[in-house]
Simulated assay, not measured.
Amino acid sequence: MTEDHTTAPRAEPRQHAPAAASAEQAQAWNGDDGRHWVRHRERYEAMQRNFTPHLLRAAAIGTADRVLDIGCGAGATTRAAARDAGRGHVLGVDLSKPLLAEARRLALEEGVGNVAFEEGDAQVHPFPDAAFDVAISRNGMMFFADPPAAFTNIARALRPGGRLAFSCWQEAAVNEWLVTLWTAIAPYVELPDMGGSGQPGAFSLADPERVRQLLGGAGFTDIAVEPVAEPIHLGDDAEDVVEFVASLGLIRDLLAQATEENARQALAALHTELAGHQGPDGIALGAAAWLVTARTPE
């Protein structure tokens, strides 16, 4: 492309039906979960930072590209994409008002001017047709209540020959960070159902064949799903990580439902387990994701 895109494609003012099944996600990300991410933004970013170079490599963003960042959160990937698309523009979309406010603040603070942020649900958001060259997402695609609708809507927003690149978690059993946490506390609390492929949640896209079927059904071609394994940095030491984990909404609920003694033992067991993973740079555990790429037909 040679055209200089200096303004963001804007949503069209047409009517669209809200996705009722997304109400729970929107409530969480505009409530405690969203505020927790803002408070601990640097830690959350450190946890996922190693996946960003893989995502950007796969996206192959050109200097004048128009980029759509789905589930942009506080905008780390949006700003990274904007630096690659120096003469283009990046639109970050997320459900969370608190995270979008943080994203705008950071873009202004860092002087990244070729970005914009919109609150929206990618399943139904009225993106302009064929308005983007690339769509990206770092671990933000797994929570769709209606994945076929979401991927169809994203495909519509991409130009012919447009590119899609996103990461999503592989199954829970191969993610050391989650296995370590659950194994430590399992004797003392009742573990939640984290869902799996096809079920709403962090692991809904864990099956590569399902990913291929969803994207193919949405009209994408040249679909590729490749494994990516990276360590994620959880914190400085066991005490630091346990304090953070105990502040997570899901873990707070589990501990609140346990007896006081079982809650204490669960955190003590987690501290002991994490201490065994202490390294010179803190505590890092393995994470396994899929890197997914596809194109819209020419």
Rank of each mutant, 00 (worst) to 15 (best):
P128R: 12
V67T: 07
A58P: 07
A80T: 05
V124I: 14
M142N: 02
R66L: 15
P53F: 10
A145Y: 05
M142V: 00
E109M: 11
R83C: 11
H36L: 13
I136V: 15
H40Y: 14
H36S: 10
E24P: 03
L95S: 05
Q48K: 11
P98D: 03
G86E: 15
D32K: 11
R49G: 00
G73Q: 08
D84S: 13
H36G: 00
A58R: 05
R57N: 14
W37P: 04
A26K: 11
I61G: 03
V112F: 06
C72Y: 05
V93P: 04
P126H: 02
A130C: 13
R66P: 01
V124D: 00
E45I: 09
R49T: 07
F117L: 08
L91A: 08
R49I: 07
A80D: 14
A130W: 04
N30C: 10
P98G: 06
G34Q: 02
T63D: 15
V67H: 00
D69T: 06
V93D: 03
A107C: 09
V115Y: 01
D133C: 11
A82K: 06
G31W: 03
L55D: 02
R79N: 07
L100C: 09
A122Q: 00
V115W: 06
P128E: 15
R57V: 08
L99I: 03
G92Q: 01
V124L: 07
V134N: 05
A85R: 05
A74D: 12
A82R: 05
V93I: 15
D33R: 09
I61D: 01
A80P: 00
A59T: 08
R138A: 10
R35Q: 14
E102C: 02
T78K: 00
R138P: 04
H36P: 02
T63S: 14
L56I: 12
G75N: 09
V93H: 04
W37E: 02
D65K: 06
A103W: 05
G86A: 13
C72W: 01
R57T: 12
S96W: 00
V134F: 05
